[in-house]
Amino acid sequence: MSKLQVSLYRYHPETDSAPYMQEFQVDTQGRDLMVLNLLEMIKEDDSTIAYRRSCREGVCGSDGMNMNGKNGLACITPLSAVVKNNKLTLRPLPGLPVIRDLVVDMGLFYKQYERIHPYLQNDTPSPAIERLQSPEERDKLDGLYECILCACCSTACPSFWWNPDKFVGPAGLLQAYRFLADSRDTATRERLSELEDPFSVFRCRGIMNCVAVCPKGLNPTRAIGKIREMLLANAT
């Protein structure tokens, strides 16, 4: 069994003037490890490698990275799903500034998330118990609330690459729709008016890169389409 060829993006702001690729040969002993396990093996020998990780089961969204050209979560991506010709190239999520190695500055991504007011707004007084919601109304939130903010989608989106300061991006828009679709939210009009400019929503060209990479199988493109429909209904 030949060793796996791993090509790893390296950059240390204190010592490197430019990023470079470093090659590693890893003996996986034929096991179909997750990419995160592979990184841990490499880091045992070279502790200077930096990446984020937390839950290691695909729910915290820490270890989004670009594996052989495709964004995904390292902890739930088995080598068998990405390795081609015994070679694996690991890069940080594209389009965001690199802090060190695989760690990117997610500031712009979070800013776009915050911009859509990602919290329930309801101007009626809270009842003594919960607000009632029918199972059918609640079903509308499925496929929306599960987002883990890993940024795999937004950093796979050319519109977000070009205008990360103006285009909300697929992750933020999925959450925008999560609140628009919630029967308990009463700020629909305000939310829509914040989104009708030429950038926030309308930079989406529907190429569905976001859908292709979402590790949770969510569909931001569909949510964006729904927002457009709501904007249209609101304006006509």
């Binding site: 919290y119 329930l120 309801n122 809270s126 003594a128 118990i129 919960e130 607000r131 009632l132 919601q133 029918s134 199972p135 109304e137 609640r138 939130l141 609330y145 609140f179 919630d182 308990r184 939210d185």
Partner: peptide, 20 residues
């Protein structure tokens, strides 16, 4: 505390009568 969470927007699953 749980009702507060619901009022904050936590998307609880629901029974047919609309309760948590």
């Amino acid at each position: 505390a749980v009702f507060e969470l619901e009022h904050m927007g936590l998307p609880f699953s629901r029974f047919d009568n609309g309760r948590i």
